[in-house]
């Protein structure tokens, strides 16, 4: 890895991201939801479910989708080959792109929270939890991005990731029976760990969340190895 080359990739992908309508509009999605909530105009405390729904949407639709789409497009248009043949390593490329999507996600979330006028007095645990969650979504996106060959096929992977991991809290609206098996299983999904941490729990949700990060990392590393072998 080389900082200069990572920054070069970052610069190029930043430009690409902002000029790609599909990617660029993904930033607006969380903001739009925040705006809708804001215009409802109640001054009560924001429900944690809404906060984490917005986090989940931002992470899945910008972090995961963004890196996946960028990698898939480089594969599809065969520009990745040119990068790999240059002194840039696959790691430089992945880190540069990850920085772009991380920045875009951070901006989108910050704007969303501002609009909702949220009180941002998050503790160290909450912030650690959010970072872990971000890593989970990023690794998943990288894993898929290294595997898929075209932008069209990304949606096959992205849709389930968004529905299961991004929109997790929506389950409460769809299935109201708390004892339902799916509700029980959903309790182990990453986003619910963040909600638990937000509500004051710490050890168990942090452990479960870390497990998800490890799993996603193993998947990304496996994709990386497979990719380097046929490269």
């Amino acid at each position: 890895m080389n900082a200069g080359r990572i920054m070069t990739i970052f610069e190029k992908d930043f430009k690409e991201f902002t000029r790609n309508m599909m990617l660029f509009t993904s930033i607006l999605l969380p903001v739009l939801i925040a705006f809708m909530y804001g215009s409802m105009g109640d001054s009560q405390q924001i429900p944690s479910m809404l906060i984490f729904l917005i986090v989940g949407i931002a992470f899945s639709s910008i972090l995961t989708s963004g890196i996946m789409t960028m990698m898939a497009e480089e594969n599809e248009k065969n520009t990745l080959r040119g990068l790999v043949q240059s002194p840039a390593s696959m790691m430089d490329i992945l880190v540069g792109k990850s920085l772009v999507v991380t920045l875009m996600t951070a901006v989108s979330l910050a704007v969303s929270f501002l609009i909702m006028d949220m009180d941002m007095s998050w503790g160290a645990m909450d912030i650690t939890g959010i970072i872990l969650l971000g890593l989970f979504f990023l690794n998943s996106g990288i894993g898929v991005g290294l595997t898929v060959k075209s932008v069209a096929t990304t949606s096959v992977y992205l849709l389930p990731i968004m529905l299961i991991f991004g929109f997790t809290p929506m389950i409460e609206i769809i299935i109201q029976d708390e004892t339902h098996i799916i509700r029980q299983a959903a309790d182990y999904l990453p986003l619910y760990q963040n909600m638990a941490i937000y509500d004051g729990e710490a050890l168990v949700p942090m452990l479960i969340l870390s497990l998800w990060v490890v799993l996603s990392f193993v998947y990304a590393a496996w994709s990386f190895k497979a990719r380097m072998k046929d490269a």
Binding site: G4, R5, N78, R81
Partner: peptide
Amino acid sequence: NSSLYDRLTVKDNLELFRKLYG
């Protein structure tokens, strides 16, 4: 099947590789 980044300018494309190759 070499190709360029369509959304970027000629200069941006070349600048990318100029920097990567030093």
